[in-house]
Write a protein that binds this DNA or RNA. Structure first.
Lengths: 188, 188
DNA sequence: AATTTACGTCAGGCTTATTGACATATTTCA
DNA sequence: TGAAATATGTCAATAAGCCTGACGTAAATT
């Protein structure tokens, strides 16, 4: 594990922090939300760095992680939907997908209803790797929530959801809060 | 946009999925925090895309934004500290910094106490651009918090802080919750 | 039969990052 | 004072991951 198991700093230190009341003419520092801008940067930086060591061992990058993750979360996903989720082009996706397929983490199947589609499914091997990669991230989240009031998880979740472009809300909600179907579509 | 896939919308069965293979007792879908993993991805994706259009107009990239942002937040920052914050090498930073200096957004000054250091300061022009770039992000945060209970902001802030590597807590706290000094170090 | 859709692929290019090696000015230490 | 460490700059080579544009193919839709 890459995360130090050091004792958690006391959240009590959060009570009286300067949130406004700047010195300058334009209150640059006092803009509400400015701290969240920066915390988001640092939190995300550390968050995505969690699986990096493991990823490097496999010769994969973060893009591979994202693809594998979403395939595992929604087996049978189409290429088009993956592109939409990741916000990249098919030319960018292709080499990454090719890697994952060639190394046996993902299988592509011709769609049954629309034979133009190449549906993506994780193999057992792919599921196992996805699990390993996400583990340190889940650990980080669990530690961040440990000892907090029971409503924090729900409020954080709602906040993050509200941070997403409203146009994508329906899509994201379905992806995030829907069970991966137990289809028998494993390879092997 | 062809986001047409399976219509399974039953958040009921979050308990037992037959997980074949290696990982054993882990229930893949029901892992707590899995939704936060994904929401963090989408929220951050949309969050960083906010300033992109503006950035492109200036011929800058996201790296320029980050550098400018932190210089504005902590005027007089050293190169070493910037490297530490961004987690990159000086070779990566240099061309970006050079851009910003040449175009008049940042000035470098020889340190007074240690003349080896090149302290970084924003110009008025730099501060203005930084403000413009951060504006849509602050707007997004404000919208996400609008109408929520008054404790949400503090709880989200605490959560994000706890998500950061504990080793960096002191450093980040100082950076985030310290006023930019009103030094007369403007370039003119 | 013509068009559209879903996907694959080739080509070329950009930004941001990397490691390694070396140079220079300045501070600190012995 | 001389040696070593520090802060920064720079050149070179490399790579991941993204981009646009263009073209091709199979399958569905009209």
């Amino acid at each position: 594990m890459s995360i130090a198991s050091s004792p958690r700093t006391s959240p009590a230190a959060f009570s009286s922090l300067p949130e406004s009341g700047s010195a300058g003419a334009d209150d640059t520092a006092g803009r509400p939300g400015n701290d969240i801008v920066e915390l988001l940067f640092f939190a995300y930086r550390d968050f995505v760095s969690d699986p990096d060591r493991l990823l490097t061992q496999y010769g994969f990058g973060r893009a591979h992680h994202r693809v594998l993750h979403f395939v595992e979360r929604q087996p049978g996903m189409t290429i088009a939907e993956m592109l939409d989720i990741l916000g990249i082009t098919k030319q960018s996706l292709n080499p990454i997908l090719k890697d994952l397929v060639e190394k046996g983490y993902i299988v592509q199947r011709t769609g049954t209803v629309d034979r133009r589609q190449r549906l993506l499914f994780p193999t057992d091997k792919g599921r196992a790797l996805s699990l390993d990669l996400t583990k340190p991230q889940l650990g980080r989240i669990a530690r961040a929530l440990a000892g907090t009031e029971p409503d924090v998880r729900a409020k954080v979740t709602a906040f993050l959801f509200a941070m997403i472009d409203p146009d994508d809300h329906a899509h994201v909600a379905r992806l995030v809060w829907t069970e991966p179907a137990t289809d028998g579509h494993d390879a092997e």
